[in-house]
Design a protein around this nucleic acid. Structure first.
Length: 286
DNA sequence: CAAGAATCCTGAATGC
DNA sequence: TGCATTCAGGATTCTT
């Protein structure tokens, strides 16, 4: 499940590949990717002949810049659940579920594969990509200085929704998915299903700091690979070994030894420690 | 407007 | 062994 740390790892991997040769050809499978009118017109032909440059990231989205005599263009990519964007040598066999192949003048290719097709690709001018959905309506970048507890409180402090839902809402904060939402809530000692409006300012600060911490640590370990995620060179991440709660229901809490509890809410699984992440407002007892 | 449900999709894991 | 069922969940769209 590529979330911010995984997408950031792909971004860095693509930049490290130093592709400095024009895009000579594109191949697109005939399978539709994702639903939603914002992704209907892919405009991929607009990138033919252009020179690739910087790779940007916004939330879980990649924006690959291509130089153009009039206005810089960009390839917008979302990896969905099972998407991969990998640099390959010219002769590498094409994998099943390949949906986009970018061939560069130096012979290398960048391929987008996505078995479940929850991902998406689209090209336009950079300005148009930034100004339209989905990028234009994303919440703040969690690793930016502007993001803090006050940001979260202002955007969600009066909501009845659960804290997990708040963190998963890309309009509130961009790039957090289920793994890092649950990890951040554990680190902040907050129950995932606690209604947002019950938090005090100090707890919002704790939560914002925890979000930053878990994302930074995951980037440092090049993302979390459970099954599908791979970096831009096909490598797995290493952060799965460092997760405190995600995927660990029934195991002992690393802090207190209490068995971690799994739950399903709004159709999505979650895990928490019933001792360290209390639902009640009662003060914690050490 | 907010919140919950349905939707898309394939492969791995599970059940019988 | 084989077949059917369940589950995984990000973002969008639909419904309440």
């Amino acid at each position: 499940m590529p979330e911010l740390p995984e997408v950031e790892s792909v971004r860095r991997g693509l930049e490290r590949a130093e592709l400095h040769a024009p895009l000579v050809s594109l191949w697109r499978s005939d399978k539709p990717l994702r639903i939603g009118k914002a992704w209907q017109d892919e405009h991929l032909d607009r990138l033919r002949g252009l020179m690739p440059s910087r790779v940007h990231r916004r939330g879980k989205y990649l924006v690959w810049q291509f130089e153009h005599p009039e206005a810089p263009h960009g390839l917008l990519v979302h990896l969905g659940m099972t998407g991969r964007l990998v640099v390959t040598p010219p002769a590498a066999p094409r994998e099943l579920h390949t949906h986009l192949v970018l061939a560069f003048a130096d012979g290398r290719e960048v391929r987008f594969t996505d078995p479940r097709r929850f991902g998406g690709v689209r090209a336009d001018t950079l300005a148009a990509l930034w100004a339209t959905e989905p990028l234009c309506e994303l919440g703040p970048e969690p690793l930016s200085r502007a993001f803090d507890g006050a940001t979260l409180e202002a955007r969600a402090g009066r909501s009845q929704r659960s804290l997990r839902e708040i963190l998963l809402d890309q309009h509130v904060v961009a790039g957090v998915g289920n793994i890092y939402a649950l990890e951040a809530l554990f680190r902040a000692r907050l129950h995932p299903l606690l209604p947002a409006r019950r938090l005090r300012t100090s707890a919002w600060e704790r939560l914002a700091s925890a979000v930053k911490d878990v994302l930074r640590e995951a980037i440092r370990h090049r993302g979390t690979t459970f099954r599908d995620y791979r970096g831009a060179h096909g490598e797995t991440g290493q952060n799965q070994h460092r997760l405190a709660v995600y995927g660990r229901a029934g195991e002992s809490c690393s802090q207190c030894g209490t068995p971690l509890v799994g739950f399903v809410h709004m159709g999505r699984g979650g895990v928490y420690c019933p001792h360290d992440q209390r639902r009640s407002r009662a003060r914690w007892v050490e």
